[in-house]
Each structure stands twice: as structure tokens, then as C-alpha cells.
């Protein structure tokens, strides 16, 4: 009971306090709608556009998840290359760091030009490009720092590299992998929205935000921001749930 209260009650209370402070801030300054919407403006906005919110949220959601899924595959593959081969690590690391350093906003027009009109594809591509780096690095480090004894207990029995990977190396890197996945999921979400906002005739929550801006519908813009925050929380906790399921053993009991 106490535990449930702490896990659910406290976060909800924190959100309510946050909304009240926001409302008070707008009210105290007497800000009009077009300067800063207040929480009480949001329910009407949601009620008015609820079907758009559903459609657009779905667009943003599936593209983020698709981009993230590709990032997991490619990132894990690159991480394996870097974890198992020193030469690959030396070759790939600077390339990846350099690529990661490029602000992704600058790539939006580039990919928009290469793949004209492929809105879905461009969005997924951006979500992927922005999020695979932490996964590649964490898998690479996890594999290359595996203590040799772990490998030797199986290798001395004549186990294949593949067996050693699936039985020991892979599960042992799962905690690091999920740590990186938590970062990656937020990044992929940002990547998706970046393309949705910038692209003309885009879809998704980012495009809805853009349309609010063009039409001067400020409550709509703020409602989109709240929807984005909500979706971000859902995605993040989905990863936390997967982590508990597959790498829960790494969590130490509380003292």
C-alpha cells in the first residue's frame, strides 16, 4: 500500500502541483492566450481536435518505434563489430563520433532533398540516425570489457564464439544496452518530431504543432506539447518495462 502510494501517488501529486504553478504563473502575470496558454485552456483544445490528436500521435509513435528498432539492430551490429575487433573499433569509432557530432537539424534538408516527398521514410531515417550512437557505444564497451575468465569457462569446453556470445556476452551487456536504450528512445522521439515540424505537409504531432503555429492557435500548440510529453513518458516507461523484464536481475535489492 505504502509502496503503491509512493510509486503512483507521488508522481501524480507532482504533476498536479506543476499544473497549478503553471496556471498561477499565467494568471498572476495576466498573460493572454497568445503569449502563454494556461492548463485550463488545454482541455478545450484536446476536445476540439481529439481525432487529430489520435491520428497524429499514432503517426509519431510508430515512426519513432520503427526508427528506434532499426537503431537497435544497426547499433547492436556496430557495437558487436567494435566489441570483438580492435581494428574495427579503431576504424569505426572516429567515424561514429564525427557523425554523432553533426547537429541533426542540418541533415533534415539534406535527406529531404535526397528522398523528396518520402515523408514517412525521412522521419524514420532521422529517428534512426539520431539514436543508434549510444546503443553502438554501449554494446561495444560492454563486449570489449567482458572479463576473460567469463569467456574462458565456456571456451575451455570448446564452445563456439556464437555460443559464448549468446550465453554470456549478450546477457552480460543487457544492463548497459538498456541504459543506452533509455537515452536512445528520447533521442529517436526528438528526431521524429524534428522532421515532422520542419517538413512541409508533414504529419504527426510535430506537424500538428506547426499547424497550430500557422493558424495562431496557441492553446493547440501547448496541447501538442503536453501530448508530446505524455507520449515521451509512455515510450520511456515502455523501455523501463522491457528492462525490468529482460535485465531485472541487474537490479540490486533495496536496503
Amino acid at each position: 500500500m505504502n509502496d503503491a502510494l509512493r510509486k503512483i501517488g507521488v508522481p501524480i501529486a507532482a504533476i498536479v502541483v506543476f499544473l497549478i504553478l503553471w496556471e498561477l504563473l499565467v494568471w498572476a502575470n495576466g498573460w493572454p492566450n497568445y503569449k502563454m496558454a494556461s492548463p485550463s485552456d488545454l482541455p478545450p483544445a484536446f476536445a476540439k481536435y481529439w481525432n487529430l490528436f489520435l491520428i497524429m500521435s499514432w503517426q509519431t509513435l510508430w515512426r519513432t518505434v520503427a526508427g528506434l528498432a532499426i537503431a537497435v539492430l544497426v547499433g547492436t551490429f556496430l557495437g558487436m563489430l567494435m566489441g570483438f575487433s580492435r581494428i574495427m573499433r579503431a576504424a569505426l569509432y572516429p567515424l561514429l563520433v564525427g557523425f554523432n557530432a553533426i547537429p541533426k537539424a542540418t541533415l533534415v534538408p539534406v535527406i529531404a532533398l535526397i528522398f523528396i516527398g518520402q515523408h514517412n521514410f525521412n522521419t524514420v531515417l532521422m529517428a534512426f540516425m539520431i539514436s543508434f550512437f549510444p546503443i553502438a557505444v554501449s554494446v561495444g564497451i560492454g563486449l570489449s570489457t567482458l572479463e576473460p575468465e567469463y569467456r574462458d569457462i565456456l571456451r575451455s569446453l570448446g564452445a563456439s564464439r556464437y555460443t559464448i556470445f549468446t550465453k554470456i556476452a549478450l546477457p552480460k551487456t543487457l544492463p548497459e544496452f538498456f541504459g543506452a536504450l533509455k537515452v536512445a528512445v528520447t533521442l529517436a522521439f526528438i528526431g521524429t518530431n524534428l522532421v515532422e515540424i520542419v517538413s512541409p505537409h508533414g504529419r504527426g504531432l510535430g506537424a500538428l504543432f506547426k499547424s497550430g503555429e500557422t493558424n495562431g492557435d496557441y492553446p493547440l500548440m501547448f496541447a501538442v506539447l503536453i501530448a508530446l510529453a505524455f507520449l515521451g513518458i509512455v515510450l520511456y516507461y515502455a523501455v523501463v518495462f522491457l528492462e525490468r523484464t529482460f535485465a531485472g536481475w541487474a537490479e540490486r535489492a533495496e536496503h
Binding site: 574462458d152 575451455s156 569446453l157 570448446g158 535485465a247 536481475w249
Partner: peptide, 19 residues
């Protein structure tokens, strides 16, 4: 000539699999 199934190894670090 290489690893064989008929050896067992134990080290100072017990290297048990935490999962």
C-alpha cells in the same frame, strides 16, 4: 591442440552469471 570438453576450470573470481 585446442580446448576439449574434459577439463573444468575455476578461478579466483567465481565468475558466476548474475542472471
Amino acid at each position: 591442440k585446442g580446448p576439449r570438453k574434459t577439463v573444468g576450470m575455476a578461478f579466483q573470481n567465481p565468475v558466476l552469471l548474475e542472471w
